[in-house]
Amino acid sequence: MKILVCIKRVPDTSENEIEVNRDGTDIERDDLVYSVNEWDNYAVEEAIQIRDKVGGKVTVVTVGEEEDEEVLRREMAMGADRGILLSDEAFIGSDGKGIAAVLKAEVEKGNYDLILTGAQADDGAGQVGGMLAAMLDWPYASLVNLIEVVDDKKIKVGREIAGGNQEMNEIDLPCVLSIQTGINEPRYVGIRGIRKVASLEIPVHTAKDLGIAADIVGESGSRTKRLDYFVPEPGEGAEILEGSAEEIIDKLIELLKAKGGIK
């Protein structure tokens, strides 16, 4: 099976406290730790497991800039067979639709059976996978937490729905799936693994290579625009307890007793 996994390099929310910059135009990007988007890492692990079971090839791809190459390499160290960087001045500032359009052009150059994306990335949109599927006219399933290969024409997928229940579907190949966390346990990637793939070449495909018109991507292709970033004020009820550790604990125990929190 030929599998393409779409990945994105994002500020790691479990390693950083994300703050708004001074004039509210962006987040504070100095000293940020970046990682591969958590959901995408599960998607790559799943692709590797499928390949190891039924054979085939795993390609990881990202739309980004030079520094985004590092996540491709990381996922190659994990076991992906190759990486592709889609990069062009024209892509900068693309919205989800623009990113999906770039990915679509790359998909059409290949001959893939299965495309995986993460369920969502850093801006919490959860849009690129569904848009890509619609542009390709391929079937789509979101929030996938189980994949079983039936044969080379179809697979069975579980979708995570409310209450921990799982919706089982059969879906024809080729298709696009968005992957939910918890579908597997992504393997650990050490420094040594990354060193091993350090010299592998990662091709860069530009707008011209992909035959993409500049006006459907980048800022000009986007109908949405961020005006500012801000942090809402704490809710009216949120009283932050202050004082020495001892004072805080005394106060808390008193409150908990009053609310029936200590039996």
């Binding site: 639709k97 999906a100 949109a125 959860g126 848009m131 995570e160 409310a162």
Partner: peptide, 23 residues
Amino acid sequence: HEHFGMDLAPGLSIKLDAVYLPD
């Protein structure tokens, strides 16, 4: 914006050629 909406909406925006505003 829940599991069904996330399944339906992004692709629908493409089919309608409408802008998508998620969540």
